[in-house]
Amino acid sequence: MTGSVALVGAGPGDAGLLTRRGLQLLEEADVIVADRLGARTVLAQLAAEGVHLRAEVIDVGKLPGHHPVPQDGINALLVELAAAGRRVVRLKGGDPFVFGRGREEQQHCEAAGIPVEVVSGVTSAIAVPAVAGIPLTYRGVAESFTVLSGHDPVGHLPGGRDHTVVLLMGVHTLGHSAHVLGAGERRLDCPVAIIEDGYGERQRVTVGTLGTIAHLAASRQVRSPAVVVIGDVVALHTAD
């Protein structure tokens, strides 16, 4: 009998933001193939709250620059487990389809005849700024936003500081991103916020401008995981 795969978004790392369907699938799973960010934190929180999950947990988490299980290996593992008749939950940080390579995993499973369910999660691009009181849109301030990976080029972005920019995985390229955006319509005085470890024990907010944020981040030793928000909406943030 062929099993199944469910791609479940764990959200930004708070079990309270896990969907009811996501929790149901975790409780029914034979195997959980878990990411590092968000996913393992949610599993730990559920255990601390007395939620018993009988599933075997396989850690395929990635660290920056260190991928102990490459993506091809993850794809093959999902097929192997489901082909053996097991109900598999691929627990992914944030949302599976927002910089999560979820569709790649879904396509690989489907090509092998494995049924796949996708359960959306709360992406950190929206949830983490919210804990700092930063909306991505606000009447009269910003009506649109763009979410980018820190590895993506930022020079082509539309609009000015009224178009909010959210950078995920953007700490290591922050200096370059700030320089490029500051040289454009947004200018060097455009507000910037970095929210580290959103929903975690190390949660911290650093606020500056495109002209100062790289220096501030270095002096405060800002570390990943962090979400960078650029635009006038940053001025609405809740002070620490």
Rank of each mutant, 00 (worst) to 15 (best):
T173S: 14
G65H: 14
G160H: 11
G85A: 12
C190S: 11
V234Y: 01
V31S: 07
L236N: 11
V128N: 05
L25C: 08
A10P: 01
I194G: 03
G38M: 13
E80W: 01
I213D: 06
F99D: 00
L168Y: 00
V141Q: 03
H172V: 13
G113E: 08
R87V: 10
D152Q: 01
L43S: 03
I74M: 03
R90I: 12
G155A: 14
H172D: 14
V128Y: 10
G182Q: 08
L43I: 04
F99K: 00
T137L: 11
M1Q: 06
S177T: 15
A130H: 08
P135A: 10
E117F: 00
G61R: 15
G65M: 12
P12W: 13
L157V: 13
V60C: 08
Y199S: 03
R186A: 13
D35N: 13
I58E: 09
L181T: 12
G150A: 04
G9Q: 10
R139V: 07
S124C: 11
K92T: 03
L46S: 13
V171G: 05
I126T: 02
I134A: 09
P135H: 07
E28M: 12
P70H: 09
Q24S: 15
P225K: 11
V171I: 15
I230W: 05
V33L: 05
L188C: 06
G100A: 11
P225N: 09
Q203T: 14
I194V: 09
G61T: 07
D14K: 12
H176K: 14
A15M: 12
S4G: 06
L91C: 07
G160E: 15
P158E: 11
